[in-house]
Design a protein around this nucleic acid. Structure first.
Lengths: 124, 124
DNA sequence: TATAGTGTACTAGTAAAATATAACACTAGG
DNA sequence: CCTAGTGTTATATTTTACTAGTACACTATA
């Protein structure tokens, strides 16, 4: 995994795992990779993984069972809420940043459409 | 000024100053506030301001004149290019983040529109 | 020439993130 | 009971952003 050195690694790990849950790589109730395994996969220290998981546990997204492993919550409503929340956060941040660049609402929407269209020609 | 502690302060200062330039608070050729003054205004250390300015100077957006001050470039093409670049970076990041949350292209656009509409009712 | 205002540079110290390493606690299965 | 696999906790160390303080260099102006 590749990290952006502008933001803490533990924070990026959290987002990475959320992503896995929301795209179906990790379904509700699924067992997460072992902490030590995650640390190896992400070439990161165990404590750093632990810190990311700690916040997810606090947030009620992950359940920890000593000796067994970490599991995605089976509370699908909680997961849906998480997705909603993360989406909103992203939209808000993007909007504010673009607005700060002196773009109008319409320009922001047009810009996004154009970006997606352009991207469609190159990727996927 | 309020900082997000997830990203380096010097980086946020740079974005703040770019913002000032692109919204006309700082016009081409204008003199920036003195480094020490900026440090006071932003309640931040001189060196931190200096680091932000250093990158802007390297990028050719700001010209430094010893004993006189720092000035916004008069190269309006360079400023336009900066705006284009920053806009693209924001769009790309936002798109990728939302895509990672398992939203389709259409959902991303719809989500943004909805967010803006919603926001319009509350703000400004 | 003197002084105030400016940018530049250097050294030292602090705080937080991340690492390295190790020990401890629980669970399942032979 | 023992062992392998798991989560949990703790300590020391390294790295980096940031701060603090100081000194130096250049410019304009009285």
């Amino acid at each position: 995994m590749q990290f952006d050195d502008k933001v803490p690694i533990y924070y990026q790990i959290k987002n990475y795992l959320y992503h896995e849950m929301l795209t179906g790589q990790l379904t509700p109730g699924a067992k997460l990779p072992a902490i030590r395994q995650l640390a190896v996969d992400l070439t990161v220290n165990v404590n750093t993984v632990q810190r990311a998981l700690g916040e997810m546990i606090t947030a009620g997204i992950v359940t920890s069972k000593r000796g067994k492993g970490n599991f995605v919550t089976t509370d699908t409503a909680r997961l849906a809420q998480l997705k909603e929340q993360l989406t909103m956060e992203q939209l808000e941040r993007a909007y504010e940043q673009l607005h700060a660049l002196n773009l109008t609402d319409d320009e922001i929407i047009a810009g996004l459409k154009q970006y997606i269209a352009q991207r469609g020609q190159q990727h996927d």
